[in-house]
Design a protein around this nucleic acid. Sequence first.
DNA 1: CAAATTTGCGGAATCGTTTGCGTAAAAAAA
DNA 2: TTTTTTTACGCAAACGATTCCGCAAATTTG
Lengths: 338, 338
Amino acid sequence: MEPVNLKYLAKELGLATSTVSRALRNSHEISDETKQRVMAMAKKLNYEPNPYASSLRKQKSKTIGVIIPEIANNFFILVINGIEAIAREKNYHVLIYLTHEDYEREKYIVQHLQNGRVDGILMSVSSETVNVDHLMDLQDKGLPIVFFDRVCESIPTAKVTTDDYNCGYLATEHLIKQGCKNVAYFSFSRQSINSKRMAGYEDALKKYGIPLKPHLIVSGTTNDTENYKLIKKLLSSKQRPDGIFSAVEKMAVSTYNVCADIGLNIPNDIKIVSFSNLEVAPLLHPSLTTITQPAFDIGKEAVSILFKSLEKKNYTLPDETFILKSALVVRDSTKKSA
Amino acid sequence: MEPVNLKYLAKELGLATSTVSRALRNSHEISDETKQRVMAMAKKLNYEPNPYASSLRKQKSKTIGVIIPEIANNFFILVINGIEAIAREKNYHVLIYLTHEDYEREKYIVQHLQNGRVDGILMSVSSETVNVDHLMDLQDKGLPIVFFDRVCESIPTAKVTTDDYNCGYLATEHLIKQGCKNVAYFSFSRQSINSKRMAGYEDALKKYGIPLKPHLIVSGTTNDTENYKLIKKLLSSKQRPDGIFSAVEKMAVSTYNVCADIGLNIPNDIKIVSFSNLEVAPLLHPSLTTITQPAFDIGKEAVSILFKSLEKKNYTLPDETFILKSALVVRDSTKKSA
DNA sequence: CAAATTTGCGGAATCGTTTGCGTAAAAAAA
DNA sequence: TTTTTTTACGCAAACGATTCCGCAAATTTG
């Protein structure tokens, strides 16, 4: 079976491939009559241009790469939805890569994206990432990249985040105002990524004259079972906190499980507020007080910024951080004890 | 800045591009010594082969396309995770396309994937899809496709589903045994996709001598607000059901919201069981009885079947349905009233 | 030692599209 | 009417990697 490509179309029409190509791209150099003929034939033969030939020739892939730590996470899902909404409008394709919070995997992916497969990258770095040489390489190759949420301060490019410091402060303050004396901080890593949330936490404690207790700072992993154990150990101890500020949704869910299992009542025995985009947060038992990020908008914003770089030539992304506001949504998990 | 491609490598090494190409692919035609030299230089210059040139020449993209209705859905997320796990092992790339349950969008996507961009497709059809001509076209072009969950019976290819009929029966029977007399059925469309779940529902009713009441069959959409209104209307009416079997997670969540708002107690006033992969189902108030699909395994199974077709030549996918078992997990939302 | 084979590599075509350049014919300007 | 410009199209060279041939030199075989 003969493939339907430009050459074949041209032969059928008695034209040169260049003419057919131009006709399909609606070039002004081609007469309307010829355009009509070409379009008709293309439709009749169900012609679809080969994207790889086109990409090779034009040195453009019309594809953006999205690199995220994990996909089983409502925040990232909503971000992807935002990205997809814009990408679809612009007729761009979206390649998704998961690092699984693994630095080596991240390096591998980034390394193999420096070959023109994508025109630009949207990325939230893994919690393990400290060395950023692999990201520097991207910059050097001129591949535009926009970070979101988990950004890399040291790379001079556009970043989209929320007001993490402020939210960390507010969340902690909220717990204190609800009567907590021992507020714990849960997150993945102590790296730069969440450092702002933690800074807000620390400053709120300081403001209210509460000493920071290192044993109340818990760093989890991607492994739910391990997190469960870590949290269980803390909440079973004598020095257990009476309030938890979780910078990651996963840890809050694990905390709910632990509390159910060891018989701690939320919010009477312990209160909790978490960064989360869980849709069913209001339906949990008890409903979860959250810091909710505008995830969909973060995705749209990040990809829109990236498109500026893709559409204008000789435009380099500004080394600037765009901040969208998150919201503290108070629910029952931080209700004052009776 | 000169691009690092085969030609450049060849020039640096004083070899022909063909030799360099072969050396990098570890061809037996090249001496070990030359291979070493080439590899070393490639590493030194950080050479990355251009995927589009390679794809064009080899007529292979090492990419699979995943077409799903939506991504904000725990089931599809887990499926994607399963797909990614295998794709990563095989060094394949994953392009994700969302139909948003829109038939026209689905047609558009499928149409534009017939050009070699992907080597194979994994797909769960939109709830709107009735005409399957666009999928037939794929078959004709020889592009392998594997359906999962929402399958297209009429297309002769491999399909991966769960035991939908059986689960529909079990869920309905469970509600009846818990004391329900008026069991409603919630889903998206009445199309083939969920027809098996509904068939199980109908047969269970019949078995227990309960007449089927059309007003208890509710077809929702992707619009949560509309679903909320639909459900609210039903649950506020005189003829409201005392049990709900929801074939889609979204509708169950909306039902929880409705019940909270109009003051219906689950499970005393109304019981509910839903197809769902919600991780926090046990933490809801009350905890939700679910039919949980082995989503991750469905993804792995579907992509594994697809790979058989990608790796063996002249192998056409069997017109066969692979069935994985779902599990009914009983929780409080269907607890017998006191 | 001559003939046959293997080894190791280079030349050039190829995948399908795009695009710079060239050029007849038609149209406009002189 | 002649000259200039515009219109509409064809030719061929890219883009970068792969692979079919071809061919010396090295090796093995008879």
